[in-house]
Computed example of a mutant assay.
Amino acid sequence: MTDATAAPLERLRARPSPGRPFGWRLSGAYGWIAPALLVALWQAGSSLGFIADTVLPSPASVVAAAWRLTRSGELASNIGVSFLRAMAGLAVGGAIGLVFGFANGLSKVSEGLSDSTLQMVRNIPHLALIPLVIVWFGIDEGAKLFLVSLGVFFPVYVNTLHGVRSVDPQLIEMAKSYGMPRAALFRRVILPGALPSIFVGLRYALGVMWLTLIVAETIAAQSGVGYMAMQAREFMMTDVVVLSILIYALLGKLADVATRLLEGFCLPWHPAYRRA
Rank of each mutant, 00 (worst) to 15 (best):
I51Y: 08
A103V: 09
T160Q: 04
F83I: 07
L267I: 15
A66Q: 07
V148G: 03
L90Q: 06
G93A: 01
R274H: 12
M236W: 15
S116N: 07
A64S: 14
Q231V: 08
S149W: 08
M87P: 04
Y30I: 11
T5E: 13
L150P: 00
T218G: 04
Y273A: 14
S47Q: 12
P18W: 08
R25N: 11
F100G: 00
P125K: 03
M237V: 11
G28Q: 13
L243G: 07
E234V: 13
I198D: 00
M1L: 12
R25Y: 15
A216C: 00
V257L: 01
R275H: 14
E217A: 00
M87L: 08
L261D: 10
N78H: 07
L213K: 00
A258T: 13
V189Q: 14
I198F: 01
A86D: 04
L171V: 09
M236H: 15
F100T: 03
D115C: 03
V257A: 00
P35V: 08
R203I: 01
L9W: 13
G49V: 05
R15L: 01
W136K: 02
L69F: 05
L250M: 10
G207L: 05
R11W: 05
W24C: 11
T238F: 15
P196A: 11
F153R: 08
M180I: 08
E111D: 07
N104D: 04
P271T: 11
P8G: 05
H270S: 15
Y273D: 09
Q231S: 08
L185P: 10
A40W: 06
V164Y: 14
A205K: 06
A183K: 08
C266N: 04
A88M: 10
A95T: 15
G224M: 02
R165M: 06
A221Q: 01
A103S: 09
E173N: 12
P268E: 07
I134Q: 00
E234G: 11
T5M: 10
V135K: 08
S114Y: 10
M230S: 05
A220Q: 00
L41T: 13
M1E: 09
T70M: 10
R187E: 08
L202F: 09
V200I: 11
I190Y: 04
Q222R: 12
P196I: 14
G252C: 05
S177G: 09
G80V: 02
S197Y: 14
I134F: 01
D168E: 12
R15F: 00
P155Y: 10
A36I: 06
R20T: 04
M228P: 00
L202Q: 11
E10V: 11
M180C: 09
L261Q: 13
A40C: 05
V189T: 12
D239V: 12
A6D: 09
A4F: 11
A103N: 04
K108D: 05
Y157R: 01
T218L: 03
R188C: 08
L113C: 13
S72M: 07
L262C: 05
A183Y: 12
I190G: 03
A103T: 06
V99L: 12
W32Y: 12
F146L: 02
I172P: 05
S61W: 13
A76C: 01
S107L: 10
R122H: 04
P35D: 05
Q119L: 07
P181A: 09
L145D: 06
V152W: 02
T160F: 06
W42V: 10
W269E: 14
V148S: 02
G224S: 03
W136E: 01
Q170I: 15
A29M: 15
L98T: 03
A40S: 02
V148T: 04
